[in-house]
């Protein structure tokens, strides 16, 4: 059974269609990334999913429960982290989690142990008696993640979990999300940081102008949108000779000499049509012909390229 299912969902604000006929499914255990430019409709989509907004048209199901008809059941299944961290200035970290545990009706005797475990998971045990407003943005985001997990939801919905974080905090949140995913949770998250999405997600949905432009795994999207495999080759000398040699090879559709590189290496980018065996053959032939190959790799996880090819920069 799908964890999340959108069926032809639309939402209009003052004659502006924020979400337009969106249909997609997320299976249990998936990490699904929702990407798109500002104003694409990602946050509206998420707010409808977490019962904060009502769709004008269509239906959304979470774990088989309708978001419109049984919102209370949906809230049991989901943990929602909005794009801005909700701060209660006058609470300690412990009190903050205790409060939300009570809001989720977790019996009093269980709360202390649960909070202790969660603080350990997000590595905040040493700050449990500190006031929430003394935490850095990265630590607040970790606390937010602990809050989301307090009632052990099967689905996490995270709106821009890494926004505003420094690179280190970003990596830490990414690691945390992977750890949470290993617990078997389904995760839907939106992000502007494509590298995070590429690294974390099993599938990606790209939204633009309220519409879901495309959905699939990164390799599926790459295959669909980028017709050739991209191969990077670097050699030490004989640039012209190497370019001519590569151009004559089978399965090589195009060879581009990469300029503007300060290193002593000569870089080529190839559009390649063959399979892995053909790629292996190509490398062998380069070495047999005494080209001093120092780098040979395939460009993968080209989410940026997929994103640019999918979106047109239209804001709804």
């Amino acid at each position: 059974m799908s964890s999340i299912e959108f069926q032809n969902v639309s939402k209009t604000f003052a004659r502006r269609k924020a979400v337009d006929s969106v249909t997609f499914k997320i299976e249990s255990g998936e990490i699904f990334g929702l990407v798109g430019p500002n104003g694409a409709g990602k946050t509206t989509t998420m707010r409808m999913l977490v019962t904060l907004l009502q769709p004008d048209q269509g239906e959304i199901f979470v774990g088989g429960h309708s978001v419109i008809k049984t919102p209370h059941e949906v809230r049991r299944l989901i943990g929602f982290m909005p794009d801005s961290f909700g701060v209660y200035d006058d609470m300690t970290v412990n009190e903050y989690l205790e409060f939300f545990a009570a809001c989720y009706r977790i019996p009093k005797p269980q709360r202390a142990g649960l909070i202790k475990d969660l603080l350990e998971l997000v590595d905040l045990s040493h700050r449990h008696n500190d006031m929430v407003d003394t935490l850095s943005t990265g630590l607040k985001q970790r606390l937010g993640l602990a809050r989301v997990l307090i009632h052990d939801p099967s689905i996490l919905i995270l709106d821009e979990p890494a926004s505003g974080l420094d690179p280190r905090a970003r990596v830490e949140i990414r690691e945390l999300l992977l750890e949470v995913a290993r617990l078997g949770k389904t995760i839907l998250f939106s992000s502007h940081i494509l590298a995070d999405v590429a690294e974390l997600c099993t599938r990606v949905g790209i939204m633009e102008n309220g519409k879901l432009a495309t959905v699939g795994s990164l390799s599926q999207l790459s295959q669909k949108l980028i017709p050739h495999r991209q191969i990077k080759v670097a050699i030490l000398d004989k640039a012209e000779e190497a370019q001519a040699f590569l151009s004559m090879q089978q399965n090589v559709a195009a060879v581009r000499l990469q300029t503007g590189n300060n290193s002593s290496r000569i870089h080529f980018e190839l559009d390649f049509n063959g399979e892995d065996n053909d790629l292996h053959e190509l490398l062998n032939r380069l070495l047999e012909n005494k080209f001093s190959v120092v780098h040979f790799s395939e460009e993968t996880q080209k989410l940026e390229e997929v994103f640019m090819r999918t979106t047109k920069g239209i804001i709804s």
Partner: peptide, 13 residues
């Protein structure tokens, strides 16, 4: 204003 109402509305409260 503190964006905490959304958090509360998505709990079982």
């Amino acid at each position: 204003e503190h964006r905490t109402l959304d958090l509360l509305k998505t709990t079982l409260l």
